[in-house]
Design a protein around this nucleic acid. Structure first.
Lengths: 140, 140
DNA sequence: CTTGTTTTTGCAATTCGGTTGCAGAAACGG
DNA sequence: CCGTTTCTGCAACCGAATTGCAAAAACAAG
């Protein structure tokens, strides 16, 4: 019997596939948008906050997920949907709705590359738009 | 006797110029880079944290300063240096050094405008680069 | 200037997300 | 199966942000 898909993904990212990690990866995939540590805590309520915390840090280190600071107070995360998602040219844009508080991945919108000033070494780019999402605009 | 420059700036932004606010604005101007609430607390040590907090919120509401989430745990701020600084086309890019933790305004680098997806209402854009700043690169 | 009203401020307490130390549990490698 | 390493849960802690409330400051009218 071939090992499950989640185990495979973890191995590809050089993460040892423990039960907790597989469960969390599975849980993360069920979110449509981005998710917070608290979201995972609710969804995978057998796990401890600290285990989730450490797993998030690990996944981020191994480029399995993006970290998004949207200014809402809670850090948001979303899965990288392809191997190249973490290279700068392929970074995508995030949108934070100031009304409902949700943060969306605009997967099709890539971060525009600009001329950076000399001397700075660029490792990561965050492009975050704030405003109102379609759903909140249509209400009223 | 003409009122001082700081009072004038506050009035221009429709903020009532109290002693606390003038002192804080003055203090903010002395920072070269971005600053945090804690920085202001150190620098203006006669004031209470909560007053600084509320003043920051007020200044941000009235577009007197930018709010920058750099993922360091503490929110950073920097003064808008002209009246138009808060319009999207004139937003500038910020750089967060992962070594020394400082966050810089790259005043000359404007946020590139891209095609946003239909339906979203854009109010604000944050373009944050993370990496190593010139000073930290030259050490080592 | 004095008085009454509104706004602002300082203090103290609290919330909340994030983070850590440690001991037991699970995974791993013979 | 056993010794070693890694991971996890628990409990405690931290620090930035946030709030309620009463006193102080700013303001407006007489």
């Amino acid at each position: 019997m071939s090992e499950n898909r989640f185990e495979e993904i973890l191995r590809q990212h050089e993460i040892r596939p423990t039960a907790v990690r597989i469960l969390l990866l599975e849980t993360m995939e069920r979110f449509e948008n981005t998710f917070s540590l608290a979201d995972l805590e609710t969804e995978a309520d057998t796990l401890d906050k600290s285990s989730i915390f450490r797993t998030l840090a690990l996944f981020a280190q191994h480029h399995l997920l993006h970290v998004i600071e949207d200014g809402s107070g809670a850090t948001k995360y979303c899965l990288c949907h392809n191997d190249h998602a973490c290279r700068i040219e392929e970074m995508h844009v995030h949108f934070h709705c100031e009304i409902c508080g949700k943060t969306f991945c605009l997967d099709n919108v890539h971060v525009p590359v600009i001329r950076y000033p000399e001397g700075y070494e660029v490792r990561e780019i965050n492009y975050l738009i704030k405003g109102r999402c379609p759903a909140c605009r249509s209400k009223r």
